[in-house]
């Protein structure tokens, strides 16, 4: 047999195999299933509402709130400084630079935490860093930050501090149950400035919990 015949035979066999197997079984995803499972179980993607509120009140430039609900819901209510990337647009190329970057801390949020978590799962599997999820979503945010419940009778200092912080944060963001706050604090509620003062006082407390 001539060399060309050998070549023909080998190339034809290989080409036939490649033509018959299903196309492109490689994953564009960077993390293996096991790595994902480990991260999901550890819950490292979650940021507590208190931490987020603290950063928002301080106007921390290192965070970017990302609302993954639809634009209608976003227009009705959104967190200060948030931008809207509906979940169905999460893979669009226009958002690539925003989601795959190494400087800011992106925090996804939705009404619950499901949609935000879905956004995080997708971006994480693509290997993007610095994306997080607001724990409990907006519903939990309402409960904890905008309308904090006063602690019960048997309370620790930590709990009081946390409650104070939440009240102050709520006030700073102009939301929630302002009437429940003491009159002296309620007066300047409209401006963000008084919010800053109590928050700094509470920072230690939020570190404690």
């Amino acid at each position: 047999m001539k060399p060309l015949h050998y070549l023909t035979l080998i190339l034809m066999i290989l080409a036939l195999i490649i033509a018959l197997v299903p196309q492109n079984t490689t994953r564009p995803y960077k993390l293996t299933a096991l790595q994902m499972l480990t991260e999901i179980r550890a819950g490292t993607q979650f940021v507590s509402p208190d931490e987020v509120a603290d950063k928002i009140v301080k106007k921390d430039p290192s965070i970017q709130m990302i609302d993954v609900r639809n634009p209608r819901e976003f227009d009705m209510f959104s967190l200060p400084g948030a931008i809207n990337i509906p979940l169905q647009d999460i893979l669009s190329e226009t958002n690539f630079d925003l989601l795959n970057q190494g400087t800011k801390m992106n925090i996804f949020y939705s009404n619950g935490s499901t949609e935000a978590n879905e956004a995080w799962l997708l971006t994480r599997q693509l290997g993007y860093q610095n994306n997080y999820v607001l724990q409990g979503g907006l519903n939990y945010w309402m409960e904890t930050i905008l309308n904090p419940m006063p602690p019960g009778n048997v309370i620790s200092n930590d709990e009081i501090a946390r409650y104070d912080f939440r009240k102050a944060a709520s006030m700073a963001m102009g939301g929630g149950n302002i009437s429940a706050i003491a009159p002296s604090a309620a007066a300047p509620a409209g401006t963000p400035k008084p919010g800053v003062v109590p928050v700094q006082k509470k920072k230690k407390a939020s570190g404690g919990c």
Binding site: A15, I18, A19, Q23
Partner: peptide
């Protein structure tokens, strides 16, 4: 599919 095109190109 890429595979079928590859086959054609080999031929």
């Amino acid at each position: 599919s890429d595979g079928v095109f590859a086959f054609i190109l080999v031929v």
